[in-house]
Design a protein around this nucleic acid. Structure first.
Lengths: 148, 148
DNA sequence: TTTAGAATTGTAATCATTACAAAGTTGTAA
DNA sequence: TTACAACTTTGTAATGATTACAATTCTAAA
């Protein structure tokens, strides 16, 4: 379990990555750090909006794109409706429940060549920058509901 | 390399799966079988449309959803812009080039538990129906272009 | 030949995402 | 401190994929 980051730590992370620590950028980082449920743009925007009345959804898009480009967060395409974001850069796989839409972290399957996650490597002449493992099915909780 | 299917074989596959072999369904299957480039709904529609003037894009959506529900084809979410489809149900991973958008088949990484592809299994109490491995980076051909 | 159910079609609606230009903010050099 | 340029944020409009839905067409069995 990763300890959650305080504001100062987030600012440091942004500065180290040549990102000016604006209030909007800090807020998005902070939200992602404290809500590791793979939120969408809308979830982030709706959550921050009440305390930041002038926040624009475009800004959320802009900030997320910037953070992805600096590899501070990961963009997930596991959901065919919308893109999701994950601040957890440790090696892990993702599972999406086809019934409730929830996305869970799962352990990476054991593998001989340690080539998962953000590490870059060559494969058949192609330059691989990211590896994502997506499991799709029915989650624990939905299984219980179905059996009742 | 899988040999391409003829019309009769496609009809048989549909019938075995309790799908009435309409012209539209046969055509979509045939297109997917002979174009293993992971086409999108639009690509399929645009390709078939000239020879089937009354074809509706909604029908292409309907047919693809039906084929996915019968596990005759696989739906890929590797591209964050649109959903792609693959008739190849053998175990394999996918690579998308962030520059040109091309999606290639790659070999599955070697793994101890043979749990990839369409096989179902339980993981942490969740029922996994599909496993997809997505590589994202720059393809062979784009690398060459960049170096010139 | 009739008819009910299934399949197809076209249009309109929805929703995520992007484009873009205007307004606001910040840091720095004079 | 001031002025300016670069950067950031914002709001609106446009785009594009996907879905909803009702009308039409097709099919197969009685």
């Amino acid at each position: 379990m990763t300890k959650s980051l305080n504001r100062e730590q987030i600012i440091k992370i942004l500065l180290v990555n040549d990102i000016k620590p604006s209030l909007q950028r800090i807020s998005v980082m902070q939200y992602l750090d404290s809500h590791r449920t793979h939120p969408s743009v809308d979830e982030i925007y709706n959550a921050l909006s009440p305390d930041m009345p002038t926040l624009s959804k475009t800004t959320v898009y802009n900030v997320l794109k910037l953070l992805v480009s600096k590899s501070l967060i990961q963009q997930l395409t596991i959901d065919d409706k919308k893109v999701l974001f994950d601040i957890n850069t440790e090696k892990h796989a993702h599972f999406i429940c086809k019934r409730c839409g929830k996305v869970l972290d799962l352990a990476m399957p054991k593998n001989e060549n340690e080539t998962y996650g953000t590490q870059s490597f060559m494969l058949d002449g192609n330059y691989i920058e990211e590896t994502q493992i997506y499991y799709k099915g029915i989650c624990n909780e939905c299984l219980k509901k179905i059996n009742n």
